[in-house]
Design a protein around this nucleic acid. Structure first.
Lengths: 365, 365
DNA sequence: GTGAAAGCGCTAACAT
DNA sequence: ATGTTAGCGCTTTCAC
């Protein structure tokens, strides 16, 4: 029987004497099994459940694998095992360093956990969000880590919920009543704390500058935090100033603002990139930051510590948010369907305040 | 026979009345075929070669697919077709905006071409480069787009060459004699042009500031360009100043430099991130850029136009480099093995000079 | 501890 | 134009 099974094994292989180099990418498990004179099953076990195999046998198989430069074809195992050990990641863009830093944490955590990654970007566009998620789904990712434009009104999340796809939000902060899983800082409270630091420094006229509100629920939550802080100190919140782009110069709008009679003494920008742009705009208007006007950012990207003066900001642990989101997802995937009741669905990581550099007392004091 | 084959088709499917929801992710092509009363092959053809199928039949199949919310399992096709239509991407880090911008071009081009992506970062570490590439190989990517620390001494590239894996370098510039494919600007000539602009502005004492030289062949090529420019104008090139980190403050080294008797009147930084850090360091030393000293960067990241004054720099078309690298790779993959002799292996994209903002005439003039 | 056999979901000859 | 068949490379019962 042994001779027969040996023969049966080789029946699938193309003729090795076929002339041109094997373009199909090399030895398969079958080849390894043959070379080690064990069955396909045993060879497989050596790599996936070594404890089921006698040590000496395993040695032989590994040796054969090495000799043949065997490289497991993950496609085969993924298809057969009905789980890909892949996680899909969708963020709005990598060009905002927040997400680039987050990716770092995601990659570390995922690869350490034996999972592969598939990245797509949505450009803050809900239509593209759907498209890209469908793409991830076709690749049969086991779960996803995503940052969507607006979690509360997201067709793509509703769809995912409907299909029962495991996912964890990053940066988007699920409401306490939500059934969704999320990892973020407490956007509202941390923003409130940031603005309170501004108030503590003596500022009374503080204005929020934001990107397109509709594109980011975080921006809205941070604005709410600003309102909280202002009201708690008996100050009147001002309407937010929404700038269309992070990178283009928004000098016009800024100019109108600082030229007004009751010009603000401080800006709270809902993200660091925006803050850096605003600071540049202010300089172009001949104003000095923080001497003439203070600027507070939000995100804590590394770049903020590089510029001069260093950007005052509400610091999120970006890399950790990514790693933690992956961790939550893996826990979910591994508990086998029981929707992980143990840890709370909403994870809030601690923020930090960095209030120096671009924030000082208002000029009148 | 029809009845039989219909029955045979359903033999593999689990009992739909089995109680709990189908956890395996929904309908397969077989289900669609059944529902549309066609064979598996025909159903498959509707999606991969519609022209081989009568319109009315195709309509029926598509309708069935819609009704069953059929989602093709890419794993199946990839395994069977012996090509994954996936391309692996490896860059040093996304935290340098250069690569984040590049990713944008890569994603656009790949998805437009019907290819999927798998991203890994190496952190400029050759050991991790090998690890990550092996990971990509196990996923059976059809080809790769990579930026390695040092293309001329890269074990991972040698290995890839040995195995005949199709790949295109991005940013790394293959030598004219090289058999390798690459897409980049001409690092040496563009750097030379940048330094010549400095010289044209009146600078004579120009010093190159770089990250760890060993980590980047681009940095070395750009330094060579600096030497070219200096020599062409009868000036003595100075030794490069190598800073360990992009983001930490390197004030000490900078201080020593600008306090010297023959202090430089201009710095040429081998990348923009570094340049922004150096400018901040100079400000901390009480120097004004560009009034007291000029700074020229290299990369052309979007951030450079945001800061004030805008960063003078040698602009690379980052997104286009990514898109173009993917384009070259797809061409290679599609020409079926003939190592695409038609277009040259080394693609040099045009650079641009942005010489304003942080570059001005030296103070003595 | 090891082997035989049955597929995972799909495509691609090869028939008809 | 459509159907039949044979796997892609792997894991995983079920026997022994």
């Amino acid at each position: 029987m042994k001779t027969f099974s040996s023969g049966a094994l080789s029946v699938n292989r193309k003729d090795p004497a076929g002339g041109r180099p094997d373009t199909t990418g090399g030895a398969t498990l079958i080849d390894v099994a043959q070379a080690a004179r064990v069955s396909l099953a045993t060879a497989s076990r050596v790599f996936s459940s070594p404890h089921l195999v006698r040590d000496s046998t395993a040695q032989r198989v590994r040796e054969a694998a090495r000799r043949l430069s065997f490289r497991p074809n993950l496609l085969g195992s993924k298809l057969r095992a009905q789980q890909t050990r892949m996680i899909g990641v969708m963020v709005p863009t990598l060009e905002n360093a927040v997400f680039a830093e987050c990716w770092h944490g995601i990659e570390e955590a995922a690869l350490a956990g034996g999972y592969s990654l598939m990245l797509v970007t949505s450009g803050y566009d809900p239509a593209r969000e759907c498209e890209r998620v469908e793409y991830l789904l076709r690749h049969r990712v086991d779960g996803m880590v995503l940052t969507v434009a607006d979690a509360a009104h997201s067709t793509v999340l509703d769809q995912l919920d409907g299909e029962g796809v495991p996912y964890v939000l990053a940066y988007n902060q699920a409401g306490p009543r939500s059934r969704r899983h999320s990892v973020s800082v407490d956007n509202r409270r941390s923003a409130c704390a940031g603005v309170e630091a501004l108030i503590a420094a003596g500022h009374r006229r503080i204005v929020v500058v934001s990107g397109a509100f509709v594109a980011s629920d975080r921006a809205r939550q941070r604005f709410a935090g600003y309102q909280d802080a202002m009201r708690a100190h008996g100050l009147r919140p001002a309407a937010p100033v929404c700038l269309p782009s992070h990178t283009a110069s928004n000098a016009e709008q800024i100019r109108a603002l600082v030229r007004a009679n009751d010009a603000p003494t401080a800006f709270f920008c809902t993200n660091d990139l925006l803050a850096i742009g605003v600071i540049s705009d202010l300089r172009r208007l001949g104003l000095s930051v923080p001497r003439d006007i203070s600027v507070l950012g939000y995100d804590g990207i590394a770049l903020g510590s590089v510029v001069e003066p260093p950007l005052a900001t509400v610091v999120q642990p970006n890399s950790e948010i990514g790693a933690s989101a992956v961790g939550r997802l893996l826990a979910w995937l591994h508990d086998g369907g029981r929707a992980s009741a143990a840890p709370p669905r909403v994870t809030l990581l601690p923020h930090a305040l960095r209030v120096n550099g671009t924030v000082a007392a208002p000029p009148s004091m």
